[in-house]
Amino acid sequence: MDSQDPVLVTEPRAGILLITLNRPHVRNAVDASLAGAVDAALTRLETDASLRVGVLTGAGGHFCSGMDLKAFPTAGVPVVADRGLAGLTRARLRKPLIAAVEGAAVAGGFELALACDLITAADSAFFALPEVARGLVAAEGGAIRLPGRLPYHVAMELLLTAAPLPAPEAARYGLVNQLTRDGEALEAALALADRVQAHSRDAVLVTKQIVQRTRGLDDHTAYAVQDPLSTPVFATASAAEGARAFTEKRSPAWQR
């Protein structure tokens, strides 16, 4: 295991980069130091060809309590350049990122999870956007993303009343991909990461890119954006290998 910074621990695991927020004494609240460390870890994920999927989690039984409010009056919101809170909420990552949530994922912590592609959560975990109760706005993706992930009136209740959303309820709405027993969210996230990286690297990266670039577009415009991205994939060695493997009834042998 290697640590890029005392507030963050990174661990490469056979194609997966495990990123652990490590300020458990403040429920992994994000200050400038942690924000910079997360941003560096995400840059490593994006640039290291041996890494195919990232998993983001928190130490000490909690995912993240959002930005460090003690530091906020003097330091402001811990954004990194134009990539948002902790270099994630406004970033456009090419590689899939999975959130493994135990305990609290609130305020900016919930926004970090919403910026991930998949979410696993333990039974006792909970999500909340309590910004209005603090005179703030969920401006790092909460107010933008949540109404598209939950039924509108449910999302608005969370945003306008600061009410918490227990993980089992989030799972019923489809916000959580896998609900686990307490202490097992990370194990489930790593298993999901293995399932993702079992497939063609080209197909996975382009699929995510299409989703990112076509969200909210009408069909005609979306196809115009999608086709230049998807068409080259059909001519790759991975596509040919996938077809051969299917006809030969075997698992594909992807080029790594």
Rank of each mutant, 00 (worst) to 15 (best):
M1G: 07
Q4C: 00
V7D: 07
T10Q: 02
E11Y: 00
R13H: 00
A14K: 06
I16K: 03
L17I: 00
I19D: 03
R23I: 01
R23Y: 03
H25W: 06
R27C: 00
D31R: 00
D31V: 03
A32S: 02
A32C: 00
L34D: 00
A37T: 03
V38S: 07
E46A: 01
D48A: 03
A49D: 13
A49C: 01
S50T: 07
L51C: 01
V53G: 04
L56W: 00
H62I: 00
S65P: 00
K70Y: 08
P73V: 03
P73T: 02
A75R: 13
G76L: 11
V80K: 03
V80G: 02
D82H: 04
R83N: 13
L85S: 01
R90V: 01
R90H: 09
L93T: 13
L93F: 10
K95W: 01
I98L: 09
A99Q: 02
V101G: 02
E102C: 03
G103C: 13
A105D: 08
A105E: 12
V106F: 05
G109N: 10
F110S: 08
L112A: 02
L114W: 04
A115W: 02
C116A: 10
D117V: 10
D117Q: 12
D117F: 09
A122E: 13
D123W: 07
S124I: 01
A125F: 09
A125C: 11
A128H: 11
L129V: 07
L129A: 04
P130H: 07
E131H: 14
V132M: 13
A133M: 07
G135T: 02
G135K: 11
V137L: 09
A138I: 02
A138G: 11
G142F: 11
I144F: 08
I144Q: 14
R149P: 03
L150H: 06
P151L: 08
P151D: 07
M156G: 00
E157A: 12
L158Y: 05
L159S: 04
T161C: 12
A163V: 13
A163F: 12
A163P: 09
L165W: 11
A167N: 14
A170D: 15
A170E: 11
A170R: 14
A171T: 14
R172E: 15
Y173G: 13
G174K: 11
L175D: 14
T180D: 15
R181G: 15
G183S: 12
E184I: 11
E184H: 15
E184K: 14
L186A: 12
A188M: 09
L190T: 12
A191E: 15
A191Y: 11
L192H: 15
A193T: 11
R195K: 14
Q197Y: 10
H199F: 14
H199E: 15
R201A: 14
V206A: 05
Q209N: 03
Q209G: 07
I210T: 10
V211F: 09
V211N: 07
V211T: 08
R213H: 10
T214D: 10
R215N: 07
R215F: 13
L217T: 05
T221I: 08
A222L: 08
Y223A: 10
A224F: 03
V225Y: 04
Q226T: 09
D227A: 14
S230M: 12
F234I: 02
F234A: 09
F234S: 10
F234M: 13
A235T: 09
A237E: 04
S238Q: 11
S238M: 06
G242H: 06
E248G: 02
P252W: 08
P252L: 09
P252S: 07
W254F: 11
Q255L: 13
Q255T: 14
